[in-house]
Amino acid sequence: MAVEKVDTAGLTDQELLDVYYKMLLTRALSQRMRVLQRMGKGTFAVSAEGHEGAQVGSAYVLRPGQDWTVPYYRSVGVAVTVGMTARDVMMAFFARRDDISSGGRNMPNHFSHRELRIVSGSAPVATQVPHAVGIALASKLRGLDEVTFVYFGDGATSKGDTHEAMNFAGVHRLPVVFICENNSYAISVHISKQMAVENVSIRAQGYGFPGVTVDGNDVLAVYRAALEAHQRARAGEGPTFIEVKTYRLAPHSSDDDDRRYRSREEVEAWSQREAIVRFRALLQELGLLNQEKEESLNRRVAREVDEATDYAEQAPPPDPATVFRHLYAE
């Protein structure tokens, strides 16, 4: 039977369905935030639509609370895979007092969760990359079994911080994995104006560690690459650079109109082969997903996102009197 030949990367049936569920949740949260922003219920939204394979596939390798995650603003799928809830995401979207990421101080999608070791980030592109290297340096110096995954886009590969960080990590052979979600655009700037190479992963060679390019529409291929990088890091073999070729199906953010710089045909073509569609077909082939199961999963996701939205919408905003708190240690 053809089904027997499918390589499921060592994931159990349960785990495969869990990966799928997290991809659906990522999609639904991203869509919901976009819609809410257009309804005027929030001022800003960033979507991970199209990046689900890259994000869930890689982050599924992480051991929550033990490994470190240094995300970027598009990392909805990374955050929910490591353990943040739909509520956590929505509380940040509405900038609520009890938003775990920042208490409404940082923009939405700037995920932070100390217990889950998801590190607070900023908006300047690529500044998080050296942080990941520092975290990994500490893991190594302290002799701890920890791996750090850091996420960024293709635009971020042009920044000095990315270069400085990768070089540092290479010299010190640190347990860190650099994951570039290459979606061909940095807002409107096409990849051809960002770099003169076909695969940016080739740069890893210049830092003395392996770089691989994987198809972000194949969530299991991403998972396999991340697992291998994770194992290398744990074995003391140093960093890996994973370039995941993916595509963002939505505009850059709620402030962007992507019709100005890319054709609808291009978007349509990518949406035909995007990771969720492809993984769904695989799960069906494996007999893990039928229509009934699919519907029940979708209902579960919708329920969760509805509940999270209602909860966050009604949650109190931060108290203005607290704005000076936490500038310094208390």
Binding site: V119, P130, A132, V133, G134, I135, A138, N167
Partner: peptide, 16 residues
């Protein structure tokens, strides 16, 4: 690489 010197210090401080 001065940005990395400080950036790495920040990361290391987050990890104890």
């Amino acid at each position: 690489a001065e940005s990395a010197i400080v950036g790495v210090a920040i990361g290391a401080s987050l990890n104890g």
